[in-house]
């Protein structure tokens, strides 16, 4: 199967999942116990106001009509408008919020890959050494630390005690340092563990033994023969982590007061602004699916090259 056919097939397979995701996001409003119109309009809303809210959200129509309308509008890039300020949800999301989160997630994944791959390779090459044990222990702590707590501790040390870095906001490089470490740490840990086990598997294989037996220098065996193949499965993990960062930035954005997609969502939840919550969840999920698609295609492409060579 050529790569083009594969991509086309993957895109087709995404359609039912996408429909399901839109359905779940749409259903959120109907999971709300009680009358969603009342909750959004407020307890003191008059019957007229309630009716207007219902009308506006289309709650008077049968469910399947509501779903089809939501889907149809979403396909045309219309995710409704905010109950709070009447702005279009897409405008709320894409004016700056989405790009802020994307920047944060991208910088964090770059940090996570750099540290994770380096640590994983070092660990695998010097397997069972003190260094390996230390790296894996640190990785385990990195996995187990709540990111929001790590963020608070970093603020305490580097902002409150040392005055080195700002504690909040987004825009300058200094402001990016602490949030990127906060978001990237768990990812670095996951990638380090994955890289290590993948490297160990490759190093144990016959062609590596052959290369060594031929007298190829160890550095070349590791860098040229082993690493290239070991990193292929790591690509999948990196993609998953990147997607998680898009969703998981909620906590980091809250700790550092960064006006990204996550903080938009938290604010909208507090204000019971459901169209914005739905829109933000949908946009994050679709982004995640796209990232996964790119990762799968990359994975296949890399595997193909190995088959050919």
């Amino acid at each position: 199967m050529s790569l083009g056919v594969y991509i086309a097939r993957r895109l087709l397979q995404m359609i039912p999942v996408l429909l399901g995701v839109v359905f779940l996001v749409f259903s959120l409003l109907h999971l709300v116990p009680g009358d969603p119109a009342m909750i959004m309009a407020g307890e003191q809303a008059s019957p007229v106001q309630l009716e207007r809210m219902r009308e506006r959200l289309g709650l008077n129509d049968p469910l399947h009509i509501q779903y089809l309308r939501y889907l149809g509008n979403a396909l045309q890039g219309d995710l409704g408008s905010s109950v709070r300020n009447n702005r279009a949800v897409t405008q709320e999301i894409f004016t700056s919020r989405y790009w802020t989160t994307l920047q944060l997630a991208t910088m964090s994944i770059m940090l996570a890959v750099f540290i994770g791959v380096t640590a994983g390779v070092v660990s695998a090459v010097w397997r069972h050494s003190l260094l390996d044990t230390a790296i894996m222990l640190v990785a385990l702590f990195g996995l187990s630390m709540p990111s929001f707590w790590l963020g608070i501790m970093l603020i305490f040390w580097f902002s409150v005690q040392l005055f080195w870095l700002p504690a909040a906001g987004w825009g300058t490089l200094q402001q990016a340092v602490l949030p990127v470490i906060t978001l990237g740490t768990a990812g670095a840990a996951v990638i380090a563990r994955m890289t290590r086990s993948s490297m160990l598997e490759v190093i144990g294989q016959d062609y590596i033994r052959t290369a060594r037996a031929k007298g190829v220098r160890e550095a070349i065996v590791i860098n040229k023969h082993a690493l290239r193949n070991a990193l292929i499965p790591v690509v999948t993990v990196v993609g998953l982590q990147f997607g998680f960062f898009l969703g998981g930035s909620v906590l980091t954005e809250t700790v550092f007061a960064i006006n990204g997609l996550g903080r938009l969502m938290v604010g909208a939840i507090a204000a019971r602004d459901f169209p914005v919550v739905q829109g933000a969840v949908l946009v994050a999920s679709v982004s995640f699916m796209m990232v996964n698609l790119v990762v799968d295609v990359t994975y296949r492409f890399l595997n193909k090259r190995i088959e050919l060579s």
Partner: peptide, 9 residues
């Protein structure tokens, strides 16, 4: 479909 939502979202 459930797995299409990233992380804690």
């Amino acid at each position: 479909i459930l797995l299409a939502f990233p992380g804690i979202l």
